[in-house]
């Protein structure tokens, strides 16, 4: 697990300031159907390697972030604001 997270708003901050929610999965459209919703709510990958997660800078700027890290090396190679990520996936 990383020791420092480079928050795009606050800079490098200790991981204790953050709360991890888990995999950064995309919420399905309302009409996506039962299977898509079931997968969204219950099914999670447990990848060995690159992994995107939602982290909340709870004791900092209170922004939700998408932290990209490698579960094997603990390397953190990307920290982006979740709103920006959501914007990208929509456009």
């Amino acid at each position: 697990m990383a020791s420092l997270i480079r928050c795009p708003h606050c800079g490098a901050r200790p991981k204790e300031e953050f709360t991890i929610r888990g995999a950064a999965v995309t919420r399905p459209q309302p009409d996506a159907g039962e299977d898509a919703w079931y997968a969204y709510v219950y099914l999670r990958d447990n990848p060995m390697g690159p992994f995107d997660e939602y982290w909340h800078h709870t004791s900092g700027c209170r922004r939700w972030l998408v932290v990209s890290r490698d579960t094997r090396t603990h390397e953190t190679y990307g920290v982006r604001d979740a709103a920006a990520v959501a914007g990208e996936s929509r456009s």
């Binding site: 709360t19 929610r21 919420r27 939602y54 909340h56 709870t58 209170r62 922004r63 939700w64 604001d81 979740a82 709103a83 990520v85 959501a86 914007g87 929509r90």
Partner: peptide, 14 residues
């Protein structure tokens, strides 16, 4: 509070 922020920022940032 965390939940509302999550919804506003990641689900419906628009």
């Amino acid at each position: 509070m965390n939940h509302l922020e999550f919804c506003a920022q990641t689900l419906w940032p628009d």
